[in-house]
């Protein structure tokens, strides 16, 4: 097992320091700082419009913060273009999957390995990844757009794995899935993590996400209002306020 409470490791894999983000005149992040250590599953929780998804976009370079820095594997990546960030070992499972619907599942998976030129090892990885997702294997030559939501989520996760990332960012991986798939997806997240990939996950489904995460941050209108180990957060009454807009937390 990992040591989820040990946040003082010398160098986190990913660190956001004092991020301020604006959309036009609206401030989305207020001095946001968080860290993801190597080997961890960290989840970012929060209600609607709390700034969760924007955090993901900041990490992936799709939105530029007005202030603060993003560090990945010891190097600043603030201001880099998305493909450059991906090249450094970041994988993405975007919100609502965002598969290439008119391409086959196989093509989608190989798009995940777009930046890799080692054909032989990509082929090996494809086999290995498919072993992890037997359902996906059956649908390999189907157009991705024809799959069910749960199957698409599997493909999106497999696609991210194909890039051999150090870190996978997952934006609401359980959104819109049936309860059966929700559990399956979260189990897979845990398996992927155990195989050595660090996971940073944005989730609305707090109670389930905290079951597999080591640590969590709770975001409310762009500020971190709570942080701690998964167990601590699960028991914290404040988390309910963060979601349901209770008076104390406001």
């Amino acid at each position: 097992m990992h040591s989820p409470t040990n946040t003082a490791l010398p160098e986190p894999l990913l660190a956001l320091d004092h991020i301020d983000t604006f959309y036009g005149a609206i401030q989305v992040h207020f001095d946001l700082s968080l860290e993801v250590g190597r080997g961890e599953i960290v989840c970012l929780l929060g209600g609607n419009a709390s700034g969760k998804s924007t955090t993901m976009k900041i990490i992936l370079g799709q939105v530029q913060p007005k202030g603060g820095t993003v560090t990945f594997a010891g190097e600043a990546i603030t201001g880099l273009a998305t493909p450059k960030i991906i090249r450094r070992g970041v994988g993405s499972v975007p919100e609502a999957r965002r598969l290439f619907g008119a391409m086959t599942v196989r093509e989608n998976l190989l798009m995940g390995a777009y930046l890799r030129s080692d054909r032989a090892t990509v082929a090996e990885d494809l086999e290995r990844t498919l072993d992890l997702f037997p359902r996906v294997k059956q649908r390999l030559d189907q157009r991705a757009g024809t799959l069910s939501g749960g199957e698409q989520q599997m493909v999106a996760m497999a696609r991210a794995l194909m890039g051999r990332p150090k870190l996978i960012c997952m934006d609401e991986p359980t959104m819109g899935l049936s309860p059966l798939y929700v559990e399956r997806v979260l189990e897979l997240v845990r398996d992927i993590n155990r195989a050595g990939t660090t996971i940073f996950m944005v989730e609305q489904n707090a109670s389930l996400a905290l079951q597999i995460a080591h640590r969590g941050y709770v975001l409310q209108t762009g500020r971190v209002v709570l942080t701690g180990s998964a167990q601590e957060l699960l028991m914290d009454p404040g988390i309910r306020d963060a979601y349901l807009g209770g008076e104390q937390a406001a």
């Binding site: 992936l60 799709q62 273009a81 998305t82 493909p83 991906i86 090249r87 993405s92 975007p94 965002r98 598969l99 290439f100 619907g101 008119a102 391409m103 093509e107 798009m111 995940g112 777009y114 930046l115 696609r159 890039g163």
Partner: peptide, 14 residues
């Protein structure tokens, strides 16, 4: 093809 279908997701693949 990937860019035509989803520019942002294509960027996220590098």
């Amino acid at each position: 093809r990937a860019t035509a279908q989803d520019r942002e997701a294509a960027q996220q693949m590098g």
